[in-house]
Amino acid sequence: MLHIVNKSPFENQTLDSCLRVVGNVQGAALLLTEDAVFAATKGSIIEGKIKTAMSTIKVYALWPDVEARGMQDRVIEGIKMVDYGGFVDLVAEHSNCQSWL
């Protein structure tokens, strides 16, 4: 199952909620978009949380949003970048999808 988070982890608990529920579910995938891409960056207080999740679930970030925010050189290794086409592919290849609004 694909999970999408689009809120900054520094002003919203959405990412926490998502990881609480699916952070250790085998086969789950997380796509970070919009302000949630800040969760994909090195050196923040969120990094540990994301890395822990990455040991079980796949984590992706939407490259146009990463780049737009100047975060391209700070991305945590192992987080896969996808463009809009890749976003569509992720949605299509998973059986269903939850947007953590």
């Binding site: 529920v21 699916v22 789950a28 059986s95 269903n96 947007s99």
Partner: peptide, 12 residues
């Protein structure tokens, strides 16, 4: 999480 993964459609 298990319940959610079993769904055909999840509406948020």
């Amino acid at each position: 999480a298990k319940m959610m993964a079993e769904q055909d459609v999840v509406i948020s």
